[in-house]
Design a protein around this nucleic acid. Sequence first.
DNA 1: GTGCTTGTTGGCCA
DNA 2: GTGGCCAACAAGCA
Length: 275
Amino acid sequence: MPELAEVEFYRKRWALPGTGAVIRKVHVHADRKVFRGTDAQALQRALTGRPLGPSQAAAKQMLFRTGDSGWLGIHLGMSGELFTAPATLNPGRHDHLVLFQEEHALVFRDPRMFGRVLFHDGPAAPDWWRRIAPPILSDAFTVAAVTAFLRRRRRSPLKAVLLQQERFPGVGNWMADEILWRAALPPARPAGALTATEVRRLWRECRQVCRQAMTAIAGKGDHLPADLNVGIPRSWLFLHRWRDGGRCPRTGKPLARATIGGRTTCWSPARQGRI
DNA sequence: GTGCTTGTTGGCCA
DNA sequence: GTGGCCAACAAGCA
């Protein structure tokens, strides 16, 4: 599920109540797939007794500092979520990592286990974190960079290109559809077929969707919305795209659904056209 | 039972 | 080496 703004939402769910408080006990399901490539027992030893430090979200990843040298990385995959529970929590089957503090239990739950937990001990942030592409909302995300990337992937459908994390970090299935719908571009069109005007429109809507999603879903500053999606306006494709029979919020015409770029894709033929 | 699923990766092929 | 496609991963839900 979680894309850019949702990842930030979940980060805040841990960070707002948990930052600064000591982790007294760490529960891990060490043999679970979410710990692939990570020594879960070493992670458990390293976190116990350390305070949860500052954290950040980037693309679909999160990084929590623990103590002076610990870096806890979390990717939520398809079905992962973070939440807090009372410190008396008894971890369930899918609660692969739980950090118990005095007041709360910080829970990472992931039924499908496509998510991932990483741990790095050292003075500097881990390599995988530093390799994440610069944010869409940064100055590095330029029209020229998007143009060059679309050209490189010129035979791929736009939908598939927007899902490439190396250029569109944090964009997932629904954000890609939202961006293309706003830019009035059909998801199946080959990336190399866009005019300069269309590329600029795509670039602009990438930034708009990211900016608005961050506010609507993750909230501003220390504000955390009560739940995902409560702040999303009806004017977005997002709230109409999931079920068959949905209608385009701009044209009122029926939405179409098909597999494009290997993923379920929803678009408005009346607004975006066919190819 | 069937057929989906908001993500990523590795293998295959051109 | 690069780009493009697809199956696999696992569990829950309709």
